[in-house]
Design a protein around this nucleic acid. Structure first.
Lengths: 192, 192
DNA sequence: GTTCAAAATTGACCGTGGTCAATAAAAAAT
DNA sequence: ATTTTTTATTGACCACGGTCAATTTTGAAC
């Protein structure tokens, strides 16, 4: 009653991921084609779907891993002390999420857990994001009439909204972190 | 230099829309297939794409029209006077946006104008939604340290967030309008 | 009525994501 | 070593959205 993962399996998976990264590096996420990936990896198409339930699952893993890298960067920096520093600190994540419209769509689609038992890699990063925000807000000089968790979720909501706005052609030129600041000020620091 | 729309065109378009509505009524939005629509409408596949740039455009039109119907209902009711009444008033729109995950995805994808010149039917409804909210908030007993437009956009952001949360299996059971209220209270009525 | 240019319609065809019965390779049992 | 069972891989095949050169329909001009 054991099913130890075969070496072969890991190797194939790694080849697929490497092939995918290669395509993305060359042409971006949106242009990725499964046929291209399996060709580069030197495996049959069916093999791809033995490793990933669908193309979106591969995307979720790849993008999730990048979000985690961004969160690593964010956590390495000192705790921000005011809204401007928060906005500043979130810049890497924002840059990632605005790099391609397609990427943002994938993230939105996967930001919630699809089923209670199985939380995907992107939903996981949202949990982590939430935790980071809560850590910052816990001791920051912000309103206290609302639980920290709610405060953090609100920041997340405005964060997403600002990015969504970025993809309206009308608003895409102005620099984005700057656009987030007024929202966070209004949300976190109501008038005393 | 004239291109009066032919009768034929309008008739065909109407047949396509009716066929689509029929499929949706029977099986929902997600199950709609272009082949099914053209079969029901009795036209060739190419005709479909002469009338709609792609399947998403049909969806946007159909969903946009339902959003407008919901907004009509909302506007007919008396102006809400507090957060609970606002939440109550938004119920029809919320019901529509949570009816299918696929519908919500389409809405999110189209909520912003794709290009400056061409605003799609769904983006249009978002503008209308914004206007309705501003009308309510203009004379409501809410914070005034932030412009009404920003207040309304914030309500929109929390509205979307609550719906997104609904599609996380973990949170899907609790009733939704109730979930929105605490957010709006915190956003609109900071402590005096 | 006939002619003719513009507009609408057609359907064979393509690209791409995804399936699955058949096969090959690896591990376990003998 | 040989057989058996389990696991990984294969590639022909399907479903579905979307394209486009060829064809038909329309209606205005004569």
């Amino acid at each position: 009653m054991k099913q130890p993962v075969q070496q072969r399996t890991l190797k194939t998976r790694a080849r697929l991921l490497a092939a995918a990264e290669q395509v993305i590096a060359a042409q971006g996420f949106e242009a990725l084609r499964v046929d291209q990936v399996v060709a580069n990896a030197g495996v049959a198409k069916g093999t791809f779907f033995a490793h990933f339930t669908d193309k979106d699952a591969l995307m979720a893993q790849l993008i999730g891993s990048r979000i985690n890298t961004a969160l690593d960067m964010i956590e390495e920096q000192p705790t921000p002390n005011d809204v401007d520093e928060i906005v500043q600190a979130l810049a890497p994540l924002m840059a990632l999420m605005t790099c391609e419209r397609y990427v943002f769509d994938v993230i939105l689609r996967h930001s919630g857990a699809a089923m209670a038992e199985e939380i995907g890699p992107i939903a996981e990063t949202f949990g982590r994001f939430q935790t980071v925000l809560e850590g910052w807000l816990k001791d920051a000089p912000v309103r206290r009439d609302v639980p920290v968790a709610m405060l953090a979720e609100g920041v997340g909501a405005f964060f997403i909204q600002v990015i969504a706005l970025h993809f309206c052609a009308l608003h895409s030129d102005v620099d984005m972190p700057a656009r987030l600041a007024p929202w966070l000020r209004a949300w976190l620091l109501p008038p005393a």
